[in-house]
Design a protein around this nucleic acid. Structure first.
Lengths: 410, 410
DNA sequence: ACTTCTTTTTTCGAGCATTGAAAATAATGC
DNA sequence: GCATTATTTTCAATGCTCGAAAAAAGAAGT
């Protein structure tokens, strides 16, 4: 509803953005191909492209392949100028932090990994930690210092409404301070905070082209349970994040104890620690394990696949929690596809019967039919891919789509 | 993601739409006021307004009030030309159908009401029924025949994905045939189907200006339980409806029998028939009453307010169902306001403690705090208002914002 | 080696919509 | 009647897109 006046400036911004996103989506292209891809005329294509070239955002490729030549004037391909911009991407996890430097072409330039412990942020302000990592990264690639345009941070938890920090996080001592805006002020750079769920939603679109225009709920099952949502190819949800707190949706009133301190959350039945707890008949009110080693979770899956009763029972409970969660979600939002990712995706067959049954027991599930449920084993790459594409897209549309004011003045 | 090329045509369409929606929102205005309201220059305002005047969409008002004159050239107000268009609005309820004729100014011109019985559509095709009503309406206002631009229908139930009909409806025999597209073909007019929930969302924005830009979940409690959702003033949700099936979200697995045939839906605890069933200790698996007389429901509320144990218990159960539903919704979508409307809104104080408690027991509810919960007694008018504003807005933006092709050719 | 053909890219003039500034308009106040 | 004030309209400039025509750059044919 908050619409603004349209003028020739907004026309150009829109069309520049269109060209950049076509290039982002389809890769290096000739001007002619871009024209038909975007629907712009060749004349406009020439105008826009010469702008982008003089600004140094894109570059012409030298046609180095004499193979497969056709008649007619050969097309000159254009692509992003890799050095036109850089971005720093943080992925904060409970026990690990990863910082990646990428260029405008989307290529990973460098990466720093750091172990985190529950006490890391007890003595060190989050902003300071991030700033230190960033300095270390830029020291190794000094050329990126001047072209660094954005910092993006992937986090778990509940964001402040204004996006400057976290209200709550499973990572100790991370919530509270508005570290995103602190870092932004210190560096004079846009710093954006992204919920894991929203990045899952973004990343899912790039995993499978069929999902790019679909309505998808992407569920991460592993150390936590998270969900991101897209609506007809667009990210929706609060704070244009598209993220949810699916893992902390209530499953059973006053039920199992969750890592968040509440009781009866889906996560408290379906995350790795919960399955483990149930498999070993630990009371469901026992405090959740801080971290579950990957191989222990893996072993549990193997035992369940082999038919071990207590293990299959634990996964059934997990499936039931996820199933009822999905069935309840369907009453509010009814996607065409549900994508299951993360370590838990391997156990999909163990959970599936319970999921299907729960969905079938709901009105929307039985009338509209269950959405297509797809499992995808890969876990971290959808998140990184989502962070990368989201950040590049921000650079394209927010930073580069408008003409620089200097050029306007001249 | 599905963006299109922008050109001078889209600029004009956008700005014409801007002017029309400013007029819709604020009522009759002078050109100068509209210019500052929309952000357009006076020059553009003149150009756009003279287009709209020659097309007959707006008209200048004769300044008939000599009171409160100020210095300077007096402003000439413009407003919608009431006869520029008409729309026919159907509201289909379980036991009643209402058809309203409105003009382009949003004024109610005529109205026809018809009782419905469970057998109405057994022998009569829905499209035929609608067509007959429409003929009757137009016979009484023949002038509207030529200017009728749209038919809009408010329904309950689950829509086909393409919006041509219903997949399921609490109204017997209404689901199945794609009556919306049948009527559209027969009349050669756009016919749109709107879920009650989406109209609640639309209507809520016009009830209170403070809600116009907020994120609101509007819950109808009465013969059914329905919900519509807006996100920062925009309607979101599937099929750009913003509607949900909140009433049929599962509350308790294998719980009380719902009118939809499933078990454990929120509606089966919180709709009028459910409260009645619980108040009289009828087993919760007993078939729901087809309709509850308003005064019986009213009496029950009075008994509960007077302290009657079984009545308060029944309303507590209803509050608990709604509370857990809202708490579960918060995990997916976290609005700033929750608006309770419908007959059940009067009982808000009886349900409120359970609602608050359920929300407080969820992570999002406890971290972000509960949304502002507002009760609004009026029931049908939000839906009619929503249907009316949505339809007028469609006429403004879809039908009238682009210049007619005849003028483009000339 | 030269011409013809084909495809890509650029150039050019026309058309439109916006804008700021200036002019025209239509009252009130003295 | 004249100055003042606020609303509208007119006008010239700017920027964008588009279609058509021209230019460019090779491949294919003779």
């Amino acid at each position: 509803m908050t619409r603004t006046v349209s003028d020739s400036d907004s026309v150009r911004r829109q069309n520049r953005g269109l060209v950049l996103s076509a290039l982002r989506m389809q890769g290096a292209q000739s001007r002619t191909a871009l024209a038909s891809l975007t629907g712009l005329s060749h004349a406009s294509m020439t105008a826009i492209m010469s702008d982008l070239l003089t600004q140094g955002l894109v570059a012409e490729l030298i046609a180095d392949r004499p193979d497969g030549r056709t008649r007619g004037r050969p097309a000159t391909f254009v692509n992003f100028a890799r050095n036109a911009a850089h971005a720093a991407l943080f992925e904060l996890d409970v026990n690990r932090a990863r910082l990646s430097l990428i260029d405008y072409g989307g290529v990973l330039v460098d990466r720093i990994e750091t172990d985190l412990s529950p006490t890391t942020f007890a003595g060190l302000a989050p902003c300071q930690f991030l700033s230190d990592r960033l300095d270390a990264l830029l020291a190794r690639t000094p050329a990126a210092k001047k072209t660094l345009r954005r910092v993006a941070i992937s986090v778990q938890g509940i964001l402040e409404r204004d996006g400057r920090g976290l209200r709550w996080s499973p990572i100790q001592h991370l919530a509270g301070a508005p570290f995103a805006s602190e870092l932004s002020d210190a560096r004079d750079l846009p710093v954006t905070l992204h919920k894991r769920g929203r990045l899952l939603a973004e990343g899912a679109r790039w995993l499978d082209p069929a999902l790019h225009e679909a309505s998808v709920a992407t569920v991460f099952v592993g150390s936590t349970v998270a969900m991101g949502v897209t609506f007809r190819g667009q990210i929706m949800g609060r704070g244009d994040e598209g993220a949810t707190e699916f893992g902390h949706m209530n499953h059973v009133p006053n039920g199992a104890l969750c890592r968040c301190g509440m009781r009866g959350c889906i996560e408290a039945y379906a995350a790795d620690y919960a399955v483990l707890r149930n498999a070993y008949s630990v009371p469901e009110t026992a405090p959740p394990a801080p971290a579950v080693p990957a191989q222990q979770y893996e072993m549990l899956m193997q035992r369940a696949e082999a038919g071990d009763r207590s293990a299959t029972h634990a996964f059934n409970l997990a499936g039931r929690a996820i199933g009822f969660g999905l069935s309840r979600m369907l009453a509010i939002y009814d996607p065409s596809h549900i994508l299951i990712v993360g370590p838990g995706a391997r156990a999909i067959e163990l959970m599936r019967p319970e999921v299907d049954q729960a969905i079938k027991a709901s009105l929307v599930g039985s009338i509209n039919g269950a959405p297509h449920i797809i499992a995808h084993r890969d876990e971290t790459e959808p998140i990184f891919k989502g962070l990368l594409m989201k950040t590049l897209n921000d650079i394209d549309q927010v930073d580069f789509a408008p003409l620089p004011s200097s050029e306007r003045a001249g």
